[in-house]
Design a protein around this nucleic acid. Structure first.
Lengths: 387, 387
DNA sequence: ATGAAAGCGCTAACAA
DNA sequence: TTGTTAGCGCTTTCAT
């Protein structure tokens, strides 16, 4: 990938000594000529035939020292005369000067980049989380360095390793795995400020996520109001803390509400919609009695469940009700639209970033309550046939 | 695993000569002690109580020069004795040395970061495009710096300006607007290698996208086979080249196939699903005669159309057929599933990145053919009630 | 208020 | 094969 062109071939490479060299040195004989940066990509685009002006160029052109130039352009402009500052800025603009962020980073040991690692970018939920984080960062003038762990703890480890060594000022991570992600996360957090989002491993690294028990309770209350007496639970494999917490909460709350939830009716399947469908079919094939509702631990699962149910001619919500969790975009687009627990991703992202940047010195695990979004998958339609 | 522990406590850090200052200088009196970097974020996490070892520390510890150390750890390991190299690497590992990417970037004037700017991260289509690009970059060991233009040309300009000045080695852009995005893109491309993805402004900047006319033709052929004689076209506002191209192609092909496409039946609406529904209703309210099919220029529009149609009791596909474009994840999850033109985003991303990195010296506009994905929204079901 | 100079940590050209 | 050294471009003491 490096380059691919003979050295001195291009227009700007006039080597050596005397005359031109627009923005180079003082003009002294033998002074080395700067090469345009970005030369690496010459084949593609040949950008910047003229080397970019550096601070020293601005300084010389403005007749001041680099120190003064720096002060004029930076923000520490308290100890500089106003007219000097304006003059320098003028010159800088005329020359098209732009500070080199890498040099700046090296000097300041701060990059302005925040790394984010998610289990799977392809998952709509994480996509939405990424979008929220990007917004929070943008508001603070920070950049998002996004990486996809592709559901692999090994790859996640690799990514964290590469990010933790100075490329970013902070790290936002939704760990792949409840336990296996721990070592990598611990190492990363030892190198750079880190916050966990959505889910967290058991580690002394701050984590911000939805309040799972509250969410489950909210959903089950809703279902209870709808007359549900027996439920099945659709969970996902790839054990992450959230699932476990939600399952536990569901068990407890169901019992409390006097709802039946048989151990056999708690089923795990992978994130995929198809698998969810298969899992539903298994439940239905097994027990002659169909549960009144499927409590799905995320919206994708709910979509799979609904599809499978309808595929077998079981009406949703008339015969069986279904709830999701997360409130991804598509939950409102499916037919029937899906009743689900809305995760306040904006608040979660904002809180996480605040902690990361030290604006919020909360510590430990923070759980933000979601809100019920009541939609068709649990609403009896006016003239429904239903039970 | 690495550190996170008080200085001299661990097993490996036993310094050479005298007592303290684990990784500092040679031990000379008065030599300044390095401060841990990342001090800025102390409030949050206090990472790295021990300053990270630098190359010079490894060199000293290994008893070689920094040059040798650099050669041992870098890839230019041809001119170094194998055992020297191994020794240095050993020492580096023991010290927990990691190269400082920022210093490296400054020296090499290469960051290993590629910037990507999309009109809206929230849009599922762009999310999927981002995912593909991330994969391509990861394969090449590059990082993705992702930014959301939020449908604003001004913000896009701002983002590009910040990225183009040295933060990235290359830029992948899906421009917000067919014409208004031009100046910013031109400026950016003058600074750093740039490629346009999915859509492109009229500029001499490479662009890779789907073959729109081919896609439209494919869809209309399919519809024609299904007996469609009259269509309506649902386009999106926010004029980008793709839409215009697709509309033009639709007109031409419809005529060629003898399909009726009234000017009044070409409607624009914003990306939102709801608006698409409203637009459909407008068409239906106006003309007594309902078109045989709605050709939607993207899947989100198709979702809106289907929802609106069903809301009015018009059966899809029995009474009216609907096609989408893009094949976003959800096109396969809706009921009915949506017949659409699959965009080969993997190929598009790969080609774009290849061009960016100079592995592919194609230039100008590249159009990759999509493929028809036939699903329920145009498929007559076995025992359908019929037209 | 301004300037001179010391690095931030690394790589590569040049010497040895 | 290895070491010495000159920067990459910037910010920031420390003098003036």
């Amino acid at each position: 990938m490096e380059n691919g062109h003979p050295p001195g071939a291009s227009t700007d490479g006039d080597e050596g000594t005397s005359p031109p060299t627009v923005l180079s040195g003082t003009g002294e004989i033998g002074e080395p000529v700067r090469t345009a940066q970005g030369a690496t990509y010459t084949r593609t685009m040949t950008p910047e035939p003229t080397p970019r002006p550096r601070l020293v160029d601005v300084a010389r052109e403005a007749g001041v020292s680099v120190a003064t130039a720096s002060r004029a352009l930076g923000k520490g402009s308290e100890l500089i005369r106003a007219d000097t500052r304006d003059h320098v800025r003028q010159v800088a603009r005329r020359l098209g000067y732009r500070v080199n962020p890498v040099a700046r980073s090296l000097r300041l040991s701060t990059t302005g980049h925040i790394g984010m690692v998610v289990p799977s970018i392809g998952n709509p939920f994480f996509m939405e989380l990424v979008a929220q984080v990007e917004h929070c960062l943008a508001e603070r003038g920070l950049n998002l360095l996004l990486a996809d762990a592709r559901m692999s703890v090994a790859h996640e480890d690799h990514l964290l390793r590469s990010l933790e060594s100075g490329a970013v000022d902070g790290l936002v991570v939704a760990p792949c795995h409840e336990t296996y992600s721990t070592p990598a996360l611990e190492r990363a957090a030892a190198h750079v400020p880190t916050v966990q989002l959505d889910r967290g491993v058991q580690l002394d690294v701050p984590m911000v996520g939805v309040d799972d028990p509250h969410g489950i309770r909210t959903l089950l209350d809703h279902l209870a109001e709808r007359g549900v007496e027996r439920i099945a639970l659709l969970s996902n494999t790839g054990s992450n803390v959230s699932s476990v917490t939600r399952v536990r909460a569901a068990r407890a709350v169901a019992e409390e509400l006097g709802m039946r939830l048989d151990p056999d009716d708690i089923i795990e399947c992978s994130f995929s919609v198809d698998e969810a469908g298969a899992a539903v079919n298994r439940v239905l094939d097994r027990s002659g009695a169909v549960p009144d509702a499927f409590l799905c631990l995320n919206d994708l699962l709910a979509i799979g469940a609904i599809t499978a149910l309808r595929g077998r001619g079981i009406a949703v919500p008339e015969r069986v009700q279904v709830t999701g969790f997360d409130d991804i975009q598509f939950a409102a687009l499916m037919r029937p639209t899906i009743t689900t627990l809305h995760q306040p991703l904006d608040a979660i992202a904002d809180r996480g970033v605040s902690i990361l940047m030290g604006d919020d010195d909360s510590t430990g695990r923070i759980h933000i309550e979601g809100t019920l979004v009541e939609r068709e998958s649990t609403r009896r339609r006016p003239g429904a046939v239903g039970e």
